[in-house]
């Protein structure tokens, strides 16, 4: 665990992310319909998938917490970390999508199913963090947050399918589409951007959860020394 969360790996992964962005901005070809502004694709889509990954890991960890029934577990700290990292990526997705939307669609925002369900995901992550801060520790916090953590993941397939199920301004999925709508010169760099960003997001989650774990260890330690002192 500790080896994976070293800053060196993080710097490497983030450099990889920036390398894919550099390629997307300066080396990738021009798109026939959108011109240059489509390059935000190499940023927006990886952020979206990272937000989904965070929700997925949050769900798995929440399930483990409910099944393990232990007071303090790495799964619980990882879940808490996922909510934070997931919120950041969801906000980045919304932000970059909005910047991309204005020169293409002509609007910064619209209440279609794709954008609305993604905004809801951001609110859900926020709720999780608020619940965490409101509730007292074990057992209530772990149980309530874990149930909520599973529910948050239910929004992800809805977000993904929203452009298929309903009429939306946002276009249907380009990846995993049978009609192969992407030129390979655009598709391959995009896939690379996604994987590197997912790797970086995973590293962020690991580092954050380790920090939360150590924070709790320190708190425990201080409690013990306080109670072990002469004043108690």
């Amino acid at each position: 665990m500790s080896i994976i969360s070293t800053p060196i790996l993080g710097v490497l992964l983030l450099s990889g992310v920036f390398a894919t962005w550099g390629y997307g901005i300066f080396r990738a070809p021009t798109e026939f319909y959108q011109g240059e502004v489509y390059r935000i694709l190499y940023l927006h889509v990886p952020c979206a998938f990272s937000a989904f990954l965070s929700a997925f890991v949050l769900c798995i960890c929440s399930l483990r917490v409910l099944l393990q029934k232990s007071a303090a577990s790495m799964s619980l700290w990882t879940a808490r970390a996922c909510a934070e990292v997931g919120l950041i990526y969801t906000l980045l997705t919304l932000f970059t999508g909005s910047i991309w939307g204005y020169p293409t669609w002509g609007v910064w925002w619209t209440w279609d199913a794709r954008l609305t369900t993604t905004l809801i995901l951001a609110f859900l992550y926020g709720c999780y963090l608020l619940l965490w801060n409101t509730l007292d520790s074990y057992p209530l916090r772990a149980k309530v947050c874990s149930v909520f953590g599973i529910l948050i993941f239910l929004d992800v397939p809805i977000i993904y399918k929203s452009v298929t199920w309903w009429r939306t301004l946002h276009q249907p999925p380009s990846l995993l589409s049978p009609s192969a709508p992407m030129s390979s010169e655009i598709l391959y760099p995009l896939v690379a951007s996604i994987f590197v960003m997912l790797g970086f997001a995973a590293w962020l989650i690991l580092l954050r959860s380790q920090n939360i774990q150590t924070h709790n260890e320190i708190e425990e330690s201080l409690c013990h020394t306080a109670h072990g002192g002469t004043l108690s």
Partner: peptide, 12 residues
């Protein structure tokens, strides 16, 4: 007015 484009990304 909002422009709706397809899911295609094509090089020229």
């Amino acid at each position: 007015l909002m422009v709706k484009h397809s899911e295609e990304y094509k090089v020229p």
